[in-house]
């Protein structure tokens, strides 16, 4: 049955609805703008971590085709260097990952951080500047405090290496080596 027409316009409700329309249209417009390579700076100010205005070009135009590995080595009290050792962060694919994949966020952090680091490195060659970036500090914090070190370690250095994953004929490539940093 048809509802009776309201005799008067409900102003607060109408205003709220039009406010909602404006919000949704703006949001949709900003989402479209976010998909382009050069995005307006205002988008970063509105949503600095892309929670609400995501980039949805997934694996395109240029998909990542390498695994990223985090290696570290130590400088001992006598000045000797240990061998490079990898801290494994990526799990090999299994059926379980269809439902349960707790390592995914850390796996994803590595390319996110390294992509930001290499982007900064392309534009800024002062190592002191690079050493104060969030990705550098994050990786340094991890290798310094979370990784185990042999007795007598005075300093630690980390290395970012890329590999072709299951393609074993391609040599790994070094992407970035940090300075040595003292262990506190």
């Amino acid at each position: 049955m048809d509802q009776p027409l309201p005799s008067t316009v409900d102003l607060p409700r109408t205003a709220a609805r039009y406010g909602l329309y404006a919000l949704l249209v703006t949001w949709a417009g900003l989402t479209v703008a976010k998909q382009f390579r050069k995005t307006p700076k205002v988008l970063t100010r509105i949503d600095p971590i892309n929670t609400a205005i995501p980039v949805t070009t997934f694996f395109a135009p240029n998909p990542g085709k390498t695994d990223i590995h985090l290696l570290k080595r130590e400088k001992l009290a006598d000045g000797a260097l240990t061998e490079w050792s990898e801290y494994p962060l990526i799990e090999r694919r299994s059926l379980r990952h269809m439902l349960w994949h707790p390592s995914r966020r850390v796996e994803k952090l590595l390319p996110d951080a390294v992509s930001e680091l290499t982007q900064v490195a392309l534009e800024e060659q002062r190592i002191e500047y690079l050493q104060l970036t969030i990705p550098y500090l994050s990786l340094l914090n991890f290798v310094t405090n979370a990784c185990e070190h042999p007795d007598g370690t005075r300093e630690v250095q980390f290395l970012i290496v890329t590999s072709a994953g299951f393609e074993e004929n391609e040599e790994p490539r070094t992407l970035f080596a940090s300075d040595f940093h003292p262990i506190a």
Binding site: Q35, T57, F58, F59, A60, P61, A164, G165
Partner: peptide, 27 residues
């Protein structure tokens, strides 16, 4: 937008993107 970005990509159009993505342990 995911489709447009892939259509604009030469490595997606020639199909090489697929083995390149699936060779990684991560994805």
């Amino acid at each position: 937008s995911a489709g447009v970005a892939k259509l604009a990509s030469p490595v997606w159009r020639n199909g090489t993107a697929i083995p390149e993505i699936f060779r990684t342990t991560m994805f």
